[in-house]
Amino acid sequence: MTAIDKTDKEAVRTRFRQQRAALDAQARRAAAAGLADVVLSALPSLGIEPGSTVAAYLSVGSEPSTALLLPGMVRAGYEVIVPVCEPHYQLSWARWYEGVPLARSPRAWVDEPVGERFDRSIMAGVPLILAPGLAIDHAGNRLGQGGGYYDRFLGALARQEKRPRTVGVVYRHELVPVGTFESTPLDIPLDGAVTDEAWTWFDAGNSSRTAQTV
């Protein structure tokens, strides 16, 4: 088997996509239930009380499923917003609730709520963003699907004086050592990662950004 060059991001993406595709339905259901439990049990301890708005995503395909997490947050009293793909690889945001009408995005392979759109300024009142990714390394670097929407959004968000904590959602095996995939100084590291098992926070005060799992 030919070794994969870790600097070839598309080859690394293919590897992680194949690993996701190999997960059976039972493993995905268990991960979805675990993710909902881990996130919901931690929100109050993170200072995020019911009534707060949390930014998340509508999962698709083999992504870590938010099918239980999103309704769980709404039932617990949280407002939920999810991304909408706009022209020029920008993101806006729309409210999600159980039964919200959905339409297929004309720009990506995701469903999006039909209704009012909010620009990035809504993030001033959002304490937490749960972002999708294919993998996250222990310095907080995120490997995305390659569309560039979140890269641009996180880059713009980093320039705001007040911004939410950014946390990537991945499967356990997708939280990987530094160097597993290429990153550049232009990439915006996440503050943390969450799996169906635990939260991991990256130490922004350390130049090497060590990870701490809780």
Rank of each mutant, 00 (worst) to 15 (best):
M1C: 10
I4A: 10
T7I: 08
D8I: 07
K9Q: 06
A11G: 03
V12Q: 02
V12C: 07
R13N: 08
R13T: 10
R13W: 06
R15S: 13
R15M: 14
F16N: 01
F16H: 02
R17C: 01
Q18G: 11
Q19S: 14
Q19K: 15
Q19A: 15
A21I: 09
A21D: 11
A22R: 13
L23D: 04
L23T: 02
D24E: 12
Q26P: 00
A27Q: 15
A32R: 04
A32F: 05
A33E: 14
G34N: 08
D37S: 14
V39W: 02
L40M: 12
L40T: 05
P44D: 10
P44A: 01
P44W: 00
S45A: 15
S45R: 15
E49R: 12
E49K: 10
G51L: 06
S52K: 07
V54N: 00
S59A: 09
E63S: 04
T66N: 05
A67F: 03
A67M: 10
L68N: 03
L70H: 02
P71R: 08
G72N: 12
M73F: 01
V74L: 04
Y78W: 12
E79G: 09
I81D: 01
E86M: 12
E86V: 01
E86G: 02
R95G: 03
R95Y: 07
V100G: 06
P101T: 00
A103W: 00
W109T: 01
V110H: 00
D111E: 13
E112F: 00
V114L: 06
F118K: 02
D119L: 07
R120N: 13
R120V: 13
M123K: 07
L128S: 10
L128I: 04
A131I: 08
A131M: 14
L134Q: 08
L134E: 06
L134N: 06
I136H: 02
H138E: 15
G140W: 03
G146Q: 06
G148E: 11
Y149D: 04
Y149S: 03
D151N: 09
L154F: 15
G155M: 14
A156K: 12
A156C: 13
A158G: 09
Q160A: 13
E161M: 10
R163L: 00
P164M: 06
T166P: 03
V167N: 02
V169L: 08
V170W: 03
V170A: 10
Y171R: 06
R172E: 15
R172A: 15
V176Q: 08
P177M: 11
E182N: 11
S183N: 14
T184K: 13
D187Y: 10
I188C: 13
D191V: 09
D191C: 09
G192I: 00
G192S: 08
G192D: 07
G192R: 05
A193L: 07
A193C: 13
T195Q: 09
T195I: 11
E197Y: 10
T200F: 07
F202W: 07
D203Y: 06
D203I: 01
A204C: 11
G205S: 13
A211Q: 11
T213Q: 13
